[in-house]
Nucleic acid binder design. Sequence first.
DNA 1: AAAATATGCAACCGTTTGCTTGCTAATATA
DNA 2: TATATTAGCAAGCAAACGGTTGCATATTTT
Lengths: 106, 106
Amino acid sequence: MRRDVFQAIADPTRRAIIGLIALQAMTPNAIAEHFDTSRQAVSKHLQILVECQLVKQEQQGREIYYQLEVAKMKEIDKWLEQFRKIWEDRFNQLDTIFSNIKQNKP
Amino acid sequence: MRRDVFQAIADPTRRAIIGLIALQAMTPNAIAEHFDTSRQAVSKHLQILVECQLVKQEQQGREIYYQLEVAKMKEIDKWLEQFRKIWEDRFNQLDTIFSNIKQNKP
DNA sequence: AAAATATGCAACCGTTTGCTTGCTAATATA
DNA sequence: TATATTAGCAAGCAAACGGTTGCATATTTT
């Protein structure tokens, strides 16, 4: 069973859950109300998110609040970093070409 | 069959392929040499990457060069944007707390 | 023209995924 | 105390995933 951040965000429902609890911790029931699937299905998604440490739980009586570990999202950002450099370079190259066109350089 | 950028980068081999062809277009055979799997397996991964437009093909004789569509990677970056705002806010909050500690404020 | 090379395609197979249903445990409320 | 609510757990199931093997097609090379 693979369990990393990239596998976690592969599922669209899971991405929606992440977006939902990003600003405010929520209980499984409250989260499930936002979707067409059952509470159990949502619970399984949450379990996966917890396993890869994208989400942490906080018990309050019989309720469990799930909150996003925003810092963990940086892992994706970190992986993206290498490509950001490339796409900025490409953009700069294009910029240079446009400049040359304006100045009628070959 | 789901086929979006997030599902595409979920597989570690696919991420490795993306990293490999990011700087230079490569043929399936050349790519496959970097992995333990068969050429056909790599070919399937490439097909998925093409389907979600993360990679484009360029035929040259009997060889097909696969190149990364760096711009498509921005889609991930775009999704991450909303969380970047949050984690920067959290950092600033921490910063304020530390400042207060230094100044002996409550 | 014949052989070698590069690639895609199809069929098959075990594992994982995402979901459902049914159950149990713990806490809150009447 | 009896009942309702919240949530996790387990079994079962169809579909998707990631891989393999075998074969067909197109282009080079000899």
